[in-house]
Amino acid sequence: MASEAVIPRADRRMHRARQATLLSLATGVWASVLLPAAGLTREPDTARVAFGAVGICAFAAAQTAVLYAAVTPWLAQRWRRRTQLALAAVAALTVPLVAPVAAGAWPTWAWIGAALVGMAPLLLGLPGAVAVTAATLLVSAGVAWWTGGSVGRYVVVTGGVGVAVAAVNWLQVWFWGLLVEARQGQAAQAQLAAAEERLRFARDVHDVLGHHLTVIALKAELAARLAPVDAQRSGREAAEVQRLAAAALTEVRETVHGYRAVDLGEQLAAVAEVLRSCGVRCTVQAPAVEVPQPAASELAAVLREAGTNVLRHSRAEWCRIRIDRDGKVATMTVVNDGADDRGPDDHSHGLRGLADRLATVGGELRVRRQDAVFTLEVTVPVSS
């Protein structure tokens, strides 16, 4: 049976496929009505004709409800169970209502039994379908014995026709189930892409805010320490904190609205300025050839994190930043002294997250430490 996940009803192709499946299954319903109804024309007793017609119509209605549920994935499970219970109850009632119709002249109830066998694979697994088929064949044989009909004829109609109908019905519903699963796969793929984009956006926001907030915290701490001894410099540091906060707000807004195009040169200058303002001698060697935007964005993200780590996790006196482009690869190296054993806090995105991010674009991040000198090296493929 098709999965119960909700399928968008506005999907026209799925809607047409479902209508075609329902129309094809409806032919089986008509067969379960018309062939037993042939027995009504051979029954002289008016009361038996009336009871038989009621039983046949009730069975056709219950069968229609079950087949509709089989190709309606968004239908609640409780309604599926109700339609199946209704079909079982109606099928049991057809024995006294339909079986006596045209007794001995036409296998009226055998066609009802064939419809039951044909629907069993849609409702149950293989063991259940086999059990229902066996039980229906026994009932059909019992009806033939009770009404004076041919047991062999009843069993052949119920079993032979029922198995053929089961194969046709199962194939149609199986094919419909494949369409549903394919549609669900497309929806899941779209959701995964959206989740990956949200994760990428979260990393970008973290990179922007993490760097700026670290510098703001350090500047504010410096301003507080200088306030009692050097009010003029403390005021300058406080003004710098205000400027950095405004810059962070601007960058976050630009990131949110998707307007932020990374200028690697500006990022280099900004990180170098921040490091120098915190007492770190910083030298920068920019690339001789421009790095294209996709690679520049990745390098800028690592550069911001590296600058933050120099301030937060070291007592650096100097830092060297170098970016080179060699053919299809751009390389950035950040080296600083004063490395200690302090690691990032529990909420830091850290180098592990950057390594994962670079891996998705074919890049690589490597770090090494020799005595107190820490080296971070990044390689990123260049698309053009």
Rank of each mutant, 00 (worst) to 15 (best):
Q191N: 09
P121C: 12
A223V: 02
W176Y: 15
A115S: 15
P228D: 14
W145I: 05
A131C: 05
T158V: 03
G148D: 01
A193D: 14
H212N: 13
V157C: 03
R236P: 00
I216Q: 14
L116D: 11
A220F: 06
L116K: 11
A202H: 05
G113P: 06
V117C: 15
E237Y: 15
S234Y: 08
A202N: 05
E181T: 13
V132N: 00
A223R: 12
W174Q: 08
Q184K: 06
T136M: 05
A187F: 04
T136I: 07
R236I: 01
L138Y: 04
R200G: 00
R233W: 04
E197Q: 14
L126K: 15
H206F: 10
L116C: 10
A166R: 10
V117W: 12
D204E: 08
A220K: 02
H206A: 08
V130F: 05
V143C: 10
T133N: 02
F175H: 15
A217Y: 02
V117D: 14
A135G: 12
M119A: 09
P228G: 14
G152I: 01
L213R: 13
T133Q: 09
A164M: 14
T133V: 04
S140R: 12
L138R: 01
V161T: 10
L209F: 01
A194L: 12
P121Y: 11
G152N: 06
D207H: 04
W176G: 01
V165G: 09
A190M: 08
